[in-house]
Amino acid sequence: MAKRIDISGLSAYYGNHKAIDDISMTVEPRSVTAFIGPSGCGKSTFLRTLNRMHEVTPGGRVEGKVLLDDENLYAKDVDPVAVRRTVGMVFQRPNPFPTMSIFDNVAAGLRLNGSYKKSRLTEVVEKSLRGANLWNEVKDRLNKPGSGLSGGQQQRLCIARAIAVEPQVLLMDEPCSALDPISTLAIEDLIGELKERFTIVIVTHNMQQAARVSDRTAFFNLAAIGQPGKLIEIDDTERIFSNPSVQATEDYISGRFG
């Protein structure tokens, strides 16, 4: 489990609009890497290129290479569907499937991929819910709809759903921005536990959160509205927050813009 990601010369487009420009970086396995930067600088876009979700958007197009332990995700013979099983994703707003129970939500990834054995499903569902620190809260109502949970619980349900297919990498796009402080804390604790098993990349607007949960931090910025976003620097989180090597990073972190 847990793989290294090597990104080189990556640009992404929406039709003719270039959203991110020539990004190269390495994401270490079994660590948390945080993406910070002002809105519209392409953090979500970049994140979505890492599991080939970007091309789902009409007009979405990618140039460059993403190596997952030396295997290029954008090689010609690679099936995007298989990539997404290896690189899981959690979205900004909790989005459990409304027609499915809690159990079925967690089992969805396995079931929809054609694995139906009940005993195995039960085992995986319990393991994933425990892994998402949700088991104790829902074990008595696994057959109730997932939409009946609180926002924070729903987001942990989505995390359980994502880790149930046993990905190598977990991408999270502002997973706490729709949640209250208590639920946010629960998710941050969870991220700390999950990094033992997965490579985690998290986009966040919250500086304290980046400082609390991540080992490495990448700062993105854009020259002007309508210009493509660029990677400004990536370094150990401590360094980024205490002594960044680029002035713009320090300005952004200290709240002078963005």
Binding site: M53, R84, R85, M89, G109, L112, V165
Partner: peptide, 10 residues
């Protein structure tokens, strides 16, 4: 919902 499902590798 579509994206959630696609992101699970469905």
């Amino acid at each position: 919902l579509r994206e959630a499902s696609l992101a699970l590798g469905v």
